[in-house]
Design a protein around this nucleic acid. Sequence first.
DNA 1: CTGAAAGCGCTAACAT
DNA 2: ATGTTAGCGCTTTCAG
Lengths: 336, 336
Amino acid sequence: MPTLSDVAKVAGVGVMSVSRVVNGTRKVSAETERKVRAAIERIGYEPNEAARILKGQRAHILGLIVPDLADPFFATCANAIHETAWNAGYLTLMAASFHREDVERRETEIMVHKQVAGMLVIPAGSQNDHLLEAQRSGIAVVSMDRPLENLEADAIVVDNCAASSRATEHLIGHGHRHILCLANDEKIFTKSERVKGYSQAMRRANLPVRVSLVGPMSGTLSDNLGFALNSNPAPTAIFVTDDVLAVEALREFKKRSIKVPDQIALVSFDDFDAATLVIPTITVVRQPVVELGKRAASVLLGRLNDAGPSKVSQIVLQTELILRESCGCGHKKRKR
Amino acid sequence: MPTLSDVAKVAGVGVMSVSRVVNGTRKVSAETERKVRAAIERIGYEPNEAARILKGQRAHILGLIVPDLADPFFATCANAIHETAWNAGYLTLMAASFHREDVERRETEIMVHKQVAGMLVIPAGSQNDHLLEAQRSGIAVVSMDRPLENLEADAIVVDNCAASSRATEHLIGHGHRHILCLANDEKIFTKSERVKGYSQAMRRANLPVRVSLVGPMSGTLSDNLGFALNSNPAPTAIFVTDDVLAVEALREFKKRSIKVPDQIALVSFDDFDAATLVIPTITVVRQPVVELGKRAASVLLGRLNDAGPSKVSQIVLQTELILRESCGCGHKKRKR
DNA sequence: CTGAAAGCGCTAACAT
DNA sequence: ATGTTAGCGCTTTCAG
């Protein structure tokens, strides 16, 4: 591996001239620059990042922490971030917090210690002082999908609330008056925003708000759905706050031989492969996942270049309601 | 950030004693060790990796390159690798090659330059001299999913061929004699192994081998499937070499109102969410994705610890044939 | 505009 | 068993 002084020797100049050319730090005579560039080219010099970091510079690496790298939503996001970063000359150090705040904290500390240039996080919890710490040590932090509460940082989020209202209103538009909202009982920002959006839409239409929570504390989906369907008046439509839950609900309907959308209409958050394969196809809210990642990376990269710490931005991305059959749209008149 | 000499000062010993305690390089008196550990604890010292790297050591980072981080197969694998590496004290620098050999090459170079401890690769192409280069510079390389041709390296692969034979034989067992193999026309190791496995099974049973290739050079799935179905004798069963293709094929059958498995039976490679949601549910070959990642990471981590360069290993993982309805199993007698 | 020297934090090699 | 010195490749500082 050729070093900077190797270049200097070959070019017949001092090491600092080489350093200045490489970094564009200061004016160098055209003649010197030419010689240096030629020498670099000739011996194939690439700056040693470890030495730069030792001198206090930051690595050309972005840190990314998501709850689970195997989750399609996060994976798609991570891929988009990697691509954007790569095009700007950065690699991405990715980590999964496994939905655990303590793991996220330790990973953050290590990344800070490794002098990453900036961090992108989909935070697992609400206690985010480790990110504050990172910011204090001069690392730009951008949060995605969920805003950071106790900390001023750029955030890119999706308008979960408006999207859920729109989806709910669509069901109302189909004439439904008893619409159940099926959600997980986890306290996750995106999920509670979705329940909120549903509730607001129902209240605006003077319809009864009925939320059925599923989870370790609230019982199984099968049980809860059973109660709801046997209640009076029984819901004629259902809004599900995520794809995993939607898939489970569909299995349940299949098991109970309940016909969608005739007996019960359904709209789900998150688009998923199976949504266009099952009969009926499922109407969903599609999130701009790739854009979420790309924008987050762009914002972060922007911060790295601007020295001036401009005001933090909160970007809210809009969703798309993909109308298919499960909501009652589409004239599926063929008998089967 | 406290440094090694800070620790030395606090502990009242020389820097080397501290270094020795931290790295366990050599014997240190119990007394010294105690003092050093206390000092480290007190001022919260953590070794500076940049300085270590500058001295020629390797980073506590594994490099991972897969064709596409958003692909569920690769993402699951990446997640498993990250977890295994994390438990061993390593972070993972992940990159997507976007199925391009030149990108993979550049990413490899950068990772080598960053002094990663080892590399895990699902190679995008067959020209793998960049990985050879990495090996030469002392970095352990492990390939996954696809073996490396012109290079001696540990490899963890799935027995695509045997799995495909077994799937095909299952269809034969159902009495099918005309079985079509539907595959992509890309020249990817795993995919051609699957076609091979199908072909071998057919030949062993003295049945005609019929492979229908789909892709930019070979025409659309819709067209090719159309030809095949209109041929004489028409296939009564179909073996699909991956989930994406299976999903497309199912859409096509749905469009043409062809009933699975009555008119045509189907078995697919790769398990996928929708496989249990559609009617009928789809029989698939399930790959041990998580194990693939975990084993690959373990093998790599093993190499980092053993100084002795033992013989390269090739681990072949077995698959599971998940019997569902699309192959003709399961007595779906209820009329619908 | 350019160069020489000092030192970032660490460890290999040499002293003690 | 322990301490001292030199230097990894780079940039900051200070002279020229």
